[in-house]
Design a binder for these strands. Sequence first.
DNA 1: CAGGGAATAATTTGATCATATTCTGCCGGC
DNA 2: GCCGGCAGAATATGATCAAATTATTCCCTG
Lengths: 237, 237
Amino acid sequence: MSKAKAGSADIVSFTPDMKAGTRELPAHELIYRQLRELILFGEMRPGEAVTIQGVCDSLGAGMTPVREAIRRLTAEGALEFMGNRRVVVPELTVDSVNELIFARQAIEPQLVVRATERMTDEGLEELSTIDAELDAAIAAGDLQSYLKQNYRFHARLYAMAEAPILAAVADGLWLRFGPSLRVVCGRVGTQNLPDQHHEALAAMRAGDAGAAAKAMREDVIQGMEQVRRVLSTQRSD
Amino acid sequence: MSKAKAGSADIVSFTPDMKAGTRELPAHELIYRQLRELILFGEMRPGEAVTIQGVCDSLGAGMTPVREAIRRLTAEGALEFMGNRRVVVPELTVDSVNELIFARQAIEPQLVVRATERMTDEGLEELSTIDAELDAAIAAGDLQSYLKQNYRFHARLYAMAEAPILAAVADGLWLRFGPSLRVVCGRVGTQNLPDQHHEALAAMRAGDAGAAAKAMREDVIQGMEQVRRVLSTQRSD
DNA sequence: CAGGGAATAATTTGATCATATTCTGCCGGC
DNA sequence: GCCGGCAGAATATGATCAAATTATTCCCTG
């Protein structure tokens, strides 16, 4: 059975001590998360082509895990499968934004209602912490941090709703507009961003699920409207 | 910037017959579709374990395409990744059904509204044809055909809405309850299944988007309520 | 004689497979 | 009853083949 496959058989002996602790997550999972973050926080521009071998090089990974990660991201809508075998970061159109507005305002308030019903003191504290960091990012004009904290705020809220399917849907929607958020925010400036998080937090603290849902709905709509506004003034070059 | 060197469908002066006609899809795409159908129409039971090598054997494919297909389906929620590297067809819980009810009744009426606004005569005819086959399947008690035609009806409708994101979300939801539909229908019998498709078709024919949406909403709710009823009486596990 | 278009050649990239390696769960021996 | 080997399955790599895009060159036309 053993082949006379000459060559690369000896590089394998490079095993420091990975056996002990670092072996927690499979490689494709790590690649997936890294790529997801890159996409979500706008480090890959909309329209940019994503090649398998390019990712292999830049992340220093094998081909199979990268393939799986890309496949997974395309299934989630974070990447788009353009015709032949070209994969790109999707560019938002006005139509897409309209769909996203509808879907988000339909789903997310419900998640907030459920999260409010299940809210704990620790949860409130965690959300407040994130929101404080978000405010700090806005004050500092730190776009990168703003995007991350804003996402974290919503993601934590989804998780607290204990509705895995709805949370997955909402999360998937986020992946679709994440890449363009950076472009939009860069154009609008962090100062003018909507932030209904304080209202939502106050309502959740008071246990008023309806008010929390309303605040979140407005946060969503305002944010997405801003995206739509930028997109519709930005003629395709 | 120019979006297309794409297209130009027919520069086939050389390679006359092979290239133009049979568009050979990549293997992983084929595997994905086959697996998706198997899951969607209940040919894999909820709770059943899906092993890579098992799929390799049963579909006679290599390992890499199967891996990608499975990864994609897990990303869509059609398969579930259970802790260890075990992948199973998810079993619906009452909580999941409640989430699905909410999500579907939030999304699908909007798709129907959009489809109605864009409806053409050919579209109406196509939907009527599918619905007739659906009725025939119900009359014949052909569960397999019922499931397929029912899905086709909805899927075609989604496509006509020209809302790719909403359609993708709705399609993803369908994948989550598809496997359990067969179990439920097997228990309830095809006769008692809800069918608001006639009302929806009539409303679409009349161009009454609101009425069409209402009919679809009732179809969705009735169907999912039936699933919930069966699940909540089925305590045996 | 020069410029443009098309066909071909070459490089780049994607798809698939065979194979090695690791991990998990199980079974038998002590 | 516990520990260690064994088998099966999944992860991951590299090689290899096919397809496509790009670039170059040649020929035709103005």
